[in-house]
């Protein structure tokens, strides 16, 4: 194993990495960023939302990378941290939701826009994430049984679609930013389906295997 891959196995490093966006949030106020002072709730709302999105994309790239490049040691090292990354996706989404609450200013304002698909996609996506985060512990895996657990956690694909919709609708002109954020993930998933799909079809009868995210 190369030294980079070995280093990436270190838990403390991944934990620190996943916490950096929290430290970084204090920088705009230090830099006297007018956008931050103009509307802090809006600034943090966008910031945590985007952080959660980036982490979700990174997380969803791990399995396709592992399938396409089975000998890629770095992907293998990162793969052992999937649970931590997944939980942090949820935590940043939760912060995003709390900031949305602050942004709306009151409960009545908070619930008012749930009839709009833009908001609804976020709420549904968050609820699903909550379910996955709640069943992310070993106890849940044992309790549910490996196969059921996998089935439930395949909801991540639905979350991905909701997230793409949510991200794309918040753009005002076209979908360029969304395309940029999701391009690597979509590319990897496509390649994976192209390669692995063929293989899976051939072997379905033999293994009845269930792929995971």
């Amino acid at each position: 194993m190369n030294p980079v891959a070995r280093f990436l196995r270190k838990r403390w490093f991944i934990h620190l990495l996943l916490c950096t966006p929290l430290f970084y949030v204090f920088f705009p106020s230090l830099q006297n960023d007018t956008k931050y002072f103009a509307d802090p709730a809006k600034y943090l709302l966008d910031y945590f939302g985007l952080t959660s999105t980036y982490l979700f994309v990174a997380l969803s790239m791990i399995t396709p990378l592992r399938k396409i490049f089975p000998k890629f040691a770095i992907a293998k090292s990162i793969a052992i941290h999937r649970r931590q990354i997944g939980v942090s996706v949820f935590i940043y989404a939760l912060l995003h939701l709390l900031m949305y609450f602050a942004y709306t200013g009151s409960w009545s304002e908070f619930v008012k826009d749930w009839d709009k698909l833009f908001i609804l996609s976020g709420i549904v996506g968050f609820t699903l994430l909550l379910g996955l985060a709640a069943t992310s512990n070993n106890w849940s895996v044992r309790k549910l049984g490996g196969r059921n657990w996998k089935r439930i956690h395949r909801l991540a694909y639905l979350i991905m679609l909701l997230l793409i919709y949510h991200q794309a609708t918040q753009e005002k002109t076209g979908y360029r930013e969304t395309a940029k954020v999701f391009a690597p993930l979509i590319l990897l998933q496509t390649v994976r389906i192209a390669i692995y799909g063929k293989y899976a079809l051939k072997n379905r009868a033999k293994h009845d295997s269930t792929g995971s995210l």
Partner: peptide
Amino acid sequence: PRWSQATER
């Protein structure tokens, strides 16, 4: 279509 215009920040 994406948000309410009833209130403002």
